[in-house]
Design a protein around this nucleic acid. Structure first.
Length: 502
RNA sequence: GGGCUGUUAGCUCAGCUGGUAGAGCAGCGGACUCUUAAUCCGUUGGUCGAGUGUUCGAAUCACUCACAGCCCA
């Protein structure tokens, strides 16, 4: 098999592109077609906030000279004068170009500039008769010729596939898209600030693992040539972060990508971003309180409110989150099930079979309850809800409850019908951990592709002593979906995974 | 993996029970010195996602495939 090395740009040449190429060829003849000696001094939004409130006469008296640059998004030619709207990273500002101010030659050249071209302009601020802050241009330059036409100026790019494949075009034309990714950046910044203020240490652990661990998922496999060995893209950083707690970094977090070799959906992208954090001398009850505080603070910082509207329904991240056991959650939405039924293995299996739900035949009552919960109830948990006390057989890295060793001190957090976080008191008993790994290996050998590998070095680390610790992972993409009211994970990932074009 | 829907000009979209391709924006030419998705006049631009079939004739009907969106697993 040969490796493909050339991926040519689509040759969808048409009349418009041909005409723009001819314009570019003319520019090359005149001199430097792609100049880089232009110095932009002002951003559109800064000018609006500084001068937008001034009256026409005040602005004339102030005589404010500015130099702006950006992509031309609108163009209106009226004979001897023209208006153009340019867009920079901060927003838009209107330019006024006329034979009188700019000179006839420059204005004539402008008439042949195209929407999408990058312009630089110097001039003086003024207000039009309708009160719009504008630049009366005295000097205008074409800085970058755009060869491809922009989408229609009113509707922008609406085709979902094109928005994902050509995100650069989506970002040029759609303010909503730009806003989504600005919010994403602010969410991550707010989370980082939260952890910094709580004296956490931000760390980076390996993305390529010799033994995949920390979650139940299928990994991507790659190959290291020099060492001639298989490596796995990480499915979770958990086991490395806990090694760091053993090492004495008692509060650590990592914000980074995980990779899982699974299908795609509106909730799943093969690479996605998680924060995982660990704190020594805490338990899962502390984590739930801590998580509530974090979500409320992030929402307030990013949106200015804890009340979030998602797909037409509201939820308040400022209120205490619900806390229910798996059985309580099932019964809350399906009161027809009695305690006795939900603790009857045969009943659970027949119920799951009726629902055509997936479950592990080897599971005990706890695992079957979890499967029933996932099938029936999970998608109904719209308001923030911690589901607590997960069965040990489904939680091989979590500490057992002292009172009921068949369950663990673990929760998952659901909102808008989706899992968004997973946390627990960490299993720090090396002998129990080894036994649980062995059970996972047995399940894997019995055909469970998602069962965990046994990581002997991790056991060795635990044998040095992991202090009592609590740890949690939060799906950043799903959190951003919630805060930006986005229906698909692809709307919050700049370049989502797609099948190859053509 | 299964179901439904979609794919027509660079973009946004029409195109009826089958009769040989349309609009707006963008482009090109012209008019216009305060426009706001500027306006007005003229005009270029198409392998109708790919392929096969039915038919005198297919954007339209059927089948296969590709890609996408939504729902389900």
């Amino acid at each position: 098999m040969t490796t493909q090395t050339t991926f040519p740009a689509p040759q969808d040449d048409n009349q418009i592109i041909a005409e723009r190429r001819a314009k570019l060829a003319a520019l090359r003849k005149e001199g430097v077609a792609f100049p880089n000696d232009f110095e932009r001094k002002n951003l559109a939004a800064d000018l609006h906030s500084a001068y937008g409130e001034m009256s026409h006469d005040e602005l004339e008296a102030a005589h404010v000279g500015v130099t702006v640059a950006g992509r031309m998004m609108l163009k209106r030619v009226m004979g001897k004068a023209s208006f153009a709207t340019v867009q920079d990273m901060s927003g838009r500002i209107q330019l006024f170009i006329s034979n009188g101010d700019t000179g006839e030659a420059a204005h004539d050249a402008f008439k042949h500039y195209d929407l999408g071209d990058i312009l630089g302009a110097s001039g003086v601020l003024f207000k039009t008769k309708t009160g719009e802050l504008s630049v009366r241009v005295t000097e205008l330059r074409l800085l970058t010729k755009a060869l491809r036409p922009l989408p229609e100026k009113f509707h922008g790019l609406t085709d979902q596939e094109q928005k994902y494949r050509q995100r650069y075009v989506d970002l040029i034309t759609n303010e909503d898209t730009r806003n989504t990714f600005v919010i994403r950046s602010k969410v991550i910044q707010a989370i980082r600030e939260f952890f910094m203020r709580h004296n956490y240490l931000e760390v980076e652990t390996p993305m390529m693992h010799p033994i995949p661990g920390g979650a139940s998922a299928k990994p991507f496999i790659t190959h290291h040539n020099a060492l001639d060995m298989e490596l796995y893209l990480r499915i979770a950083p958990e086991l490395y972060l806990k090694r760091l707690v053993v090492g004495g970094f008692e509060k650590v977090f990592e914000i980074n990508r995980n990779f899982r070799n699974e299908g795609l959906s509106t909730r799943h992208n093969p690479e996605f971003t998680m924060i995982e954090f660990y704190e020594a001398y805490r338990d899962y009850n502390y984590l739930m309180d801590f998580t509530e505080k974090m979500f409320g603070e992030v929402a307030r910082k990013v949106l200015g409110t804890t009340v979030v509207s998602y797909q037409g329904r509201e939820l308040d991240l400022g209120k205490p989150f619900h806390r229910l056991t798996i059985v309580q959650a099932i019964q809350k939405y399906h009161p027809q099930f009695s305690d006795a039924q939900l603790n009857d293995r045969d009943f659970l299996i027949s119920e799951l079979q009726d629902l055509k739900a997936k479950y592990r035949t080897s599971d005990g009552v706890g695992g079957l309850q979890l499967s029933l919960f996932e099938e029936l109830t999970e998608h109904q948990l719209f308001e923030p809800t911690f589901i607590i006390d997960y069965p040990a057989e489904a939680s091989p890295l979590a500490r057992r409850s002292d009172k009921r060793p068949e369950i663990t001190e673990r929760f998952e957090l659901f909102m808008v019908g989706r899992e968004i976080a997973n946390g627990f008191s960490e299993l720090n008993d090396p002998e129990d951990q080894e036994a649980r790994f062995d059970a996972q290996v047995a399940a894997k050998e019995a055909g469970d592709e998602e069962a965990m590998f046994k990581d002997g070095d991790f056991i060795r680390a635990l044998e040095y002593g992991l202090p009592p610790t609590a740890g949690e992972g939060i799906g950043i993409d799903r959190l951003v979906m919630l805060l930006t009211d986005s229906p698909s994970i692809r709307d919050v990932i700049l370049f989502p995974h797609m099948r190859p074009e053509v």
